[in-house]
Amino acid sequence: MDNSRVLKGTAFKFGDNISTDLIAPGRLVHLRSNLPELAKHVLEDADPTFASRVKRGDFVVGGSNFGLGSSREHAPVIIKMAGVSAVLAKSVARIFFRNAINVGLPVLVCDTDRIADGDTLEVDLAAGVIRDLTNGETLTFGKIPDAMLAILNEGGLMPYIKKHGDFKL
């Protein structure tokens, strides 16, 4: 199985403690059954212009404790629906991490201090390398286990199971 995957896009930088409530505002809970509409409001409480500026392939870059809070399982779904190819952060809430992998959204734990808002990034998921094409920096993240890469390459856990039936890695 070929697990190579290189992503390229623009960094949208956020700070520490970006909660699932900031990602998917609680006042819009009535939109849970209309995820495309909810995705139009993704991260608007952290940056009101984000949803209108993000393009397919871009990255959300956070600080520490990304995805904490109420564990809204649709939070990673609407980040992905907005076009984001991966979330990079110093640390991530466990349930957000798992929910993101389940929907096919890579979450990479790395030092994000040297990434600036607007930088162009190239991420090699299999190699564990992030190249900041704007400032020339190279960052690394822990190797993604083969099982997780396989899930990500199929677009999430459900597409993986539909295609393969179970895990035979």
Results as ranks from 00 to 15, higher is better:
Gly15Asp: 10
Ala82Asp: 06
Ala100Pro: 09
Met148Gln: 14
Ala150Tyr: 01
Leu149Gly: 02
Phe167Leu: 13
Leu28Asn: 00
Gly69Met: 09
Met158Ile: 15
Leu139Ile: 06
Asp132Met: 03
Thr49Ala: 15
Leu7Val: 08
Gly104Tyr: 04
Val129Tyr: 04
His164Glu: 10
Ala147Lys: 08
Ser52Asp: 11
Arg32Asn: 07
Ala93Trp: 00
Thr120Ile: 13
Ala89Pro: 03
Asp47Trp: 15
Pro48Val: 07
Ser91Arg: 03
Phe97Ile: 08
Pro48Ala: 09
Ser33Thr: 12
His41Gly: 04
Ala150Asp: 15
Pro145His: 13
Ser52His: 09
Lys162Ala: 08
Leu38Gly: 05
Lys8Gly: 02
Met148Leu: 15
Ala51Ile: 12
Asp16His: 09
Ala82Thr: 10
Thr112Leu: 01
Gly136Val: 04
Arg131Ile: 03
Lys80His: 07
Thr134Tyr: 07
Ser52Trp: 01
Arg5Thr: 04
Asp146Ile: 12
Gly142Pro: 05
Gly128Asn: 13
Phe141Val: 09
Val6Gly: 10
Thr10Phe: 00
Ala147His: 11
Gly67Pro: 12
Ser71Tyr: 12
Ile18Leu: 05
Ala116His: 12
Ile151Val: 15
Ala127Glu: 13
Tyr160Gln: 12
Leu139Gly: 02
Phe97Trp: 07
Gly156Gln: 05
Gly26Val: 01
Asn135Met: 07
Leu38Thr: 07
Ile144Lys: 00
Asp2Ala: 14
Leu38Gln: 05
Gly9His: 05
Glu122Trp: 01
Ala147Gln: 09
Lys143Leu: 10
His41Tyr: 11
Ile130Cys: 04
